[in-house]
Every structure is written in C-alpha cells, then in structure tokens.
C-alpha cells in the first residue's frame, strides 16, 4: 500500500477571495507581516501498489481532483505505515 499526498492550489493569477479574507484576518490579529494567503486543498489517498502508479495518480488529478482551468496540483508518494 502506498500513501499519496495530493496538493491542489489555485493557479497564479486566479483571484482567491478566501485567501484575501484570511490574509486580512491575520493582519488584523497583528500578523502584519503576512502579505498574501492562498487557500488550497490537501487530499490523502491510500492506493494499492500496481504498475504506473505515478501516471495513474496524475490522471486522477487531471480528471477529477483538480480543475486544470483554475488549479495546479502536485503530489508525493510514500510507503503507507501499517496501522
């Protein structure tokens, strides 16, 4: 079993009103050093081992996990720790 960590973020240039609101909140809490916040998603997949794991995860991202019109993604694969 492998554990796949998928990170989905809004593309540069795509307005992120949530991030903007979070940045302002941080500023109002006194963290004035924060000049930008961008909100993304993190997904964790448990995947059975098989051929072409990387290629298949990339497909999953392109087809469903990220919307290529507005989002970029990256992912890491690690050995799952047995529970």
């Amino acid at each position: 079993m492998k554990k796949v960590h998928v990170y989905v973020t809004l593309k540069r240039g795509v307005l992120d009103p949530q991030g903007k609101a979070i940045q302002k909140s941080l500023n109002s809490l006194g963290y004035e050093e924060v000049v930008e916040a961008r909100v993304g998603k993190y997904l964790e997949l448990q995947v059975e081992e098989g051929p072409n794991l990387m290629g298949r995860v990339k497909e999953m991202c392109d087809k469903l996990l990220a919307n290529p019109v507005i989002e970029d993604y990256s992912f890491e694969v690690e050995e799952a720790i047995h529970s």
Binding site: L15, P17, I70
Partner: peptide, 17 residues
C-alpha cells in the same frame, strides 16, 4: 457543464464570498 468540459471555463467562489 463546465466541470464536464461541455462548456469552457470554471465557476469560482463569489468575489464577496
């Protein structure tokens, strides 16, 4: 329709949230 690729573009969170 946009998510399925039948129409171009995407619908995002309203600007005022």
């Amino acid at each position: 329709l946009t998510e399925s690729g039948l129409l171009p573009g995407a619908l995002m969170r309203n600007k005022n949230l």
